[in-house]
Measured scan of single mutants.
Amino acid sequence: MWEAGIQHIELEKGSKGLGFSILDYQDPIDPASTVIIIRSLVPGGIAEKDGRLLPGDRLMFVNDVNLENSSLEEAVEALKGAPSGTVRIGVAKPLP
């Protein structure tokens, strides 16, 4: 389960991407759907250096692409398709 509020994070995407990987996970509230979760951070990558994204965070959007009900493929496309420079990411943090 995740917090209702969405944290807005801006990262600078370079030639090596944003520095994290994702996975799809069965939604605990709606078993028929999936949620997109941050799986891991690349050591020394943009996301790890920034410090705000953590494994277990739920990915909600990338720039103007809503990922609340997306497939893993759609989420990967949104991340890979984001141009270099500032990328806006929304995440919901896990409940304590």
Rank of each mutant, 00 (worst) to 15 (best):
Ile36Tyr: 04
Lys16Cys: 07
Asp57Asn: 09
Val76Asp: 15
Glu3Pro: 03
Ile29Asp: 15
Trp2Ile: 05
Glu3Tyr: 06
Gly85Met: 03
Met1Val: 03
Gly51Cys: 04
Ala75His: 01
Glu48Tyr: 07
Asn66Ile: 07
Gly14Glu: 09
Ser70Gln: 08
Thr34Tyr: 09
Asp57Leu: 10
Asp57Ser: 15
Glu73Gln: 11
Ile36Phe: 05
Arg39Gln: 13
Gly19Arg: 00
Leu53Thr: 04
Met1Ile: 11
Leu72Ile: 14
Leu79Cys: 10
Ala47Cys: 05
Leu11Gly: 00
Val91Gly: 01
Gly51Thr: 06
Ala82Ser: 08
Ala82Asp: 03
Gln26Arg: 11
Gly14Asn: 10
Pro31Phe: 07
Gly56Ser: 04
Ser40Trp: 03
Leu41Val: 08
Pro28Glu: 15
Ile6Pro: 05
Pro28His: 13
His8Gly: 04
Ile46His: 12
Thr86Leu: 07
Pro43Arg: 06
Gly81Asp: 06
Asp57Glu: 04
Ser70His: 10
Val65Asn: 10
Glu74Arg: 08
Leu11Ala: 01
Val42Thr: 13
Ala92Ile: 10
Lys16Thr: 08
Ala75Gln: 01
Ser33Phe: 07
Asp64Ala: 14
Arg58Tyr: 01
Pro31Trp: 05
Leu18Ile: 06
Leu59Arg: 01
Ala4Arg: 07
Val42Cys: 09
Ile46Tyr: 09
Pro96Tyr: 05
Ala82Thr: 11
Glu48Phe: 05
Ala75Ser: 10
Ser40Asp: 08
Pro28Phe: 05
Trp2Gln: 07
Gly44Glu: 04
Asp64Phe: 03
Lys13Leu: 12
Ser33Gly: 08
Leu11Ile: 10
Gln7Ala: 13
Val62Asn: 01
Gly45Asp: 06
Val62Phe: 04
Ala78Gln: 11
Glu73Asn: 08
Glu73Gly: 05
Glu74Met: 15
Val91Thr: 13
Gly44Trp: 03
Gly14Thr: 13
Leu11Phe: 13
Arg58His: 03
Lys49Ser: 10
Glu10Trp: 06
Ile9Asp: 00
Val91Phe: 07
Gly56Asp: 07
Ser71Leu: 07
Ser15Gln: 14
Trp2Val: 04
Pro96Trp: 04
Ile89Ser: 00
Gly90Pro: 01
Ile36Glu: 01
Asp27Met: 07
Pro94Ile: 15
Val35Gly: 07
Leu79Glu: 02
Val42Glu: 14
Glu12Thr: 13
Leu67Gly: 02
Asn69Val: 09
Leu79His: 00
Ile89Gly: 01
Leu53Asp: 01
Arg39His: 14
Ala4Gly: 05
Leu54Val: 09
Asp50Pro: 01
Arg58Gln: 04
Val62Met: 05
Asp57Ala: 13
Ser15Arg: 07
Gly45Ala: 08
Phe61His: 10
Ala92Gln: 12
Lys93Trp: 02
Val65Met: 07
Ser71His: 09
Ala32Leu: 08
Asp30Trp: 06
Asn69Lys: 12
Val65Phe: 13
Glu77Ala: 13
Gly51His: 06
Thr86Gly: 14
Pro28Asn: 12
Leu79Lys: 01
Leu18His: 03
Glu10Val: 07
Leu95Pro: 12
Glu73Arg: 05
Leu67Val: 09
Gly81Cys: 12
Ile46Thr: 13
Ser15Asn: 07
Val76Glu: 05
Asp50His: 04
Asn69Asp: 10
Ala32Arg: 14
Trp2Ala: 13
Ser33Thr: 12
Leu72Lys: 09
Met1Gln: 03
Ile22Arg: 00
Pro83Leu: 08
Val76Gln: 15
Pro43Ile: 05
Ser33Leu: 09
Val87Gln: 03
Ile9Phe: 10
Gln26Ser: 10
Gly85Gln: 04
Ile46Gln: 12
Gly56Pro: 01
Arg88Lys: 14
Ala47Trp: 02
Val65Asp: 13
Met60Pro: 00
Gly90His: 02
Leu72Met: 13
Lys93Ile: 02
Glu3Leu: 04
Met60Asn: 03
Ala92Pro: 01
Val62Ala: 04
Ile9Glu: 02
Val91Ala: 06
Val35Pro: 14
Gly85Leu: 03
Gly19Lys: 01
Gly5Pro: 07
Val87Glu: 00
Pro96Lys: 11
Leu54Met: 14
Ser71Trp: 03
Phe20Asn: 00
Val65Ser: 12
Gly19Cys: 02
Asp27Asn: 11
Val42Tyr: 13
Ile38Ser: 00
Val87Tyr: 02
Val42Phe: 08
Ile9Cys: 06
Gly14Lys: 14
Met60Gly: 01
Ser84Ala: 15
Pro94Phe: 02
Phe20Arg: 01
Ala82His: 03
Arg39Met: 03
Leu59Asp: 00
Ala75Val: 04
Ser40Glu: 13
Val62Glu: 00
Gly51Tyr: 00
Ser15Val: 09
Pro96Met: 04
Glu3Ser: 12
Val76Ile: 10
Leu95Arg: 12
Ile22Lys: 01
Val87Pro: 00
Ile29Met: 09
Gly85Cys: 04
Lys13Arg: 05
Met1Phe: 12
Asp64Met: 06
Ser70Phe: 13
Leu18Arg: 00
Leu72Asp: 02
Ser40Ala: 10
Glu68Ser: 14
Gly56Glu: 03
Leu53Glu: 00
Glu12Ile: 14
Pro28Thr: 14
Leu95Lys: 12
Asn66Arg: 07
Tyr25His: 14
Asp24Met: 03
Gly56Ala: 03
Gly17Arg: 03
Arg39Ser: 10
Glu77Gly: 08
Ala78Asn: 05
Pro43Lys: 13
Ile36His: 09
Lys16Asn: 05
Gly44Arg: 12
Leu54Asp: 13
Lys49Thr: 12
Asp24Phe: 03
Arg58Glu: 02
Ser84Ile: 12
Asp64Asn: 14
Glu77Tyr: 09
Gly45Ile: 01
Tyr25Lys: 15
Gly17Gln: 05
Asn69Arg: 09
Glu74Gly: 06
Asp64Leu: 05
Ile22Pro: 03
Leu41Tyr: 02
Val62Pro: 00
Lys13Trp: 03
Gly51Asn: 06
Ile46Gly: 14
Gly90Glu: 02
Leu79Gly: 01
Pro31Cys: 07
Glu12Phe: 07
Lys16Gln: 05
Ala78Leu: 10
Leu79Ile: 10
Leu95Cys: 05
Pro55Tyr: 03
His8Ala: 14
Asp24Arg: 06
Gly14Trp: 04
Thr86Trp: 10
Ala47Tyr: 00
Pro96Glu: 15
Lys13Ile: 11
Gly14Ser: 14
Ala92Trp: 04
Trp2Cys: 05
Glu12Arg: 12
Ile89Asp: 00
Ile29Glu: 15
Glu73Cys: 15
Asp64Glu: 05
Ala47Ile: 02
Tyr25Trp: 15
Ser40Ile: 02
Gly5Lys: 05
Lys80Ser: 08
Gln26Ala: 12
Gln7Tyr: 10
Ala47Thr: 04
Trp2Tyr: 14
Thr34His: 07
Lys49Gly: 10
Pro28Ser: 12
Glu3Cys: 04
Glu12Ser: 12
Thr86Glu: 05
Val62Thr: 02
Asn66Trp: 09
Met1Gly: 07
Glu77Gln: 12
Ile9Thr: 04
Gly44Met: 12
Leu67Tyr: 04
Leu72Ser: 15
Ile37Thr: 15
Glu48Lys: 07
Pro28Trp: 05
Ala92Glu: 13
Ala82Gln: 06
Phe20His: 00
Gly44Phe: 06
Glu3Trp: 04
Ala32Thr: 09
Ala82Gly: 04
Pro55His: 04
Asn63His: 03
Ser15Cys: 10
Val76Leu: 13
Leu53Met: 14
Gly45Lys: 02
Ile89Thr: 00
Asp27Leu: 08
Ser84Lys: 08
Asn66Lys: 13
Val76Tyr: 13
Leu53Ser: 02
Asn69His: 11
Ser71Tyr: 04
Ile89Gln: 00
Glu74Val: 10
Thr34Ile: 08
Glu3His: 03
Asp30Cys: 12
Ile6Gln: 04
Gly45Tyr: 03
Leu54Trp: 14
Leu54Arg: 09
Gly14Asp: 11
Glu48Val: 06
Glu3Gln: 06
Lys93Cys: 04
Pro55Ile: 14
Lys93Asp: 02
Thr86Arg: 15
Asn66Thr: 12
Glu73Met: 10
Ala47Phe: 01
Arg88Glu: 15
Glu12Leu: 10
Met60Ile: 11
Gly14Ile: 08
Val42Gly: 04
Leu79Pro: 00
Ala75Pro: 00
Lys16Asp: 05
Ser70Asn: 12
Ser21Cys: 07
